[in-house]
Computed example of a mutant assay.
Amino acid sequence: MVSILELSGISKSYSGKVALNNVSLKIAPGKIVGLLGSNGSGKTTLMKIAAGLIAAASGEAKVVGQLINKETRAITSFMPDRPLTESWMRVEDAIHFYTDFYADFDRTKAHEMLAFMKLNKRDRVTSLSKGMNERLQLTLTLSRNAKLYLLDEPIGGVDPVARAKILDAIVSYYNEESSIVVSTHLVRDIERIFDEVIFIRNGEIVLQDEVENIRVSSGKSVDEMFKEVFAE
């Protein structure tokens, strides 16, 4: 089986500061994977390399067996930690923009998600709360028929009601032939949706395992294991 995402010996530094150090991992199809680490651990750098937005200094990065390039960017849907929408847009303008920009954007799915997220297509983007804006960004990201979805801190700074809605949408609307990687440091709130987790600390992978294996072998929740690993 070809991995959806495969990183081999990936390293990256900024101004002499190591962001990723010899990172290797594989993510199989049909997985929702948590990329878990504290701020500054290397999560966003890893996500941007996987999305094809920045290049690694060394190592190989592949999506569905292809070295990351323009072709793989066409099958990778990235939700950054800052909105991609413009301030002049209404919700429906954002849908039109993504429809024009991405050949794989599914307008029917987008409108279903807008209803699920309780978003009004006539609302201005600037009038949306942070939680509503996160719901919109997630709608835009998941409405593409991609192979790899990358969600960078999708529940950061939003209230518990919005978090629950966002997590339900991730589970309900992703394509099961694809995989989703969700980066977060808010482990307790989100671990229920993960099939697998990757712990990253100081630019290095310190654990990658199935959630069920962690619970059975350690008798701990992912959140408890996360606190134990990152307290060291």
Results as ranks from 00 to 15, higher is better:
203 G>H: 04
178 S>V: 09
163 R>M: 14
153 E>P: 03
196 E>M: 10
43 K>A: 09
127 S>M: 10
130 K>Q: 12
78 F>N: 05
215 R>Q: 14
157 G>Y: 09
149 Y>Q: 06
228 E>P: 01
189 D>A: 08
212 E>P: 00
90 R>G: 02
154 P>F: 10
86 E>T: 07
179 S>V: 08
46 L>F: 02
185 H>F: 11
98 Y>V: 13
26 K>V: 13
180 I>Y: 03
200 I>S: 00
94 A>N: 08
63 V>P: 00
162 A>L: 07
219 G>E: 11
66 Q>D: 12
100 D>W: 05
120 N>A: 10
120 N>F: 03
153 E>Q: 13
204 E>L: 02
145 N>G: 01
190 I>D: 01
51 A>H: 02
179 S>R: 11
73 R>P: 00
136 L>A: 07
123 D>A: 15
18 V>N: 02
109 K>C: 08
131 G>A: 10
116 F>W: 15
74 A>V: 04
61 A>Y: 04
105 F>H: 07
202 N>K: 14
225 M>S: 01
146 A>L: 05
197 V>K: 07
24 S>W: 03
129 S>T: 13
147 K>N: 11
171 V>N: 05
27 I>A: 11
42 G>I: 04
183 S>F: 03
203 G>Q: 07
142 L>P: 00
168 D>G: 10
98 Y>D: 07
152 D>R: 15
130 K>L: 13
102 Y>M: 11
74 A>H: 06
160 P>W: 12
137 Q>H: 03
125 V>K: 02
33 V>G: 08
124 R>D: 04
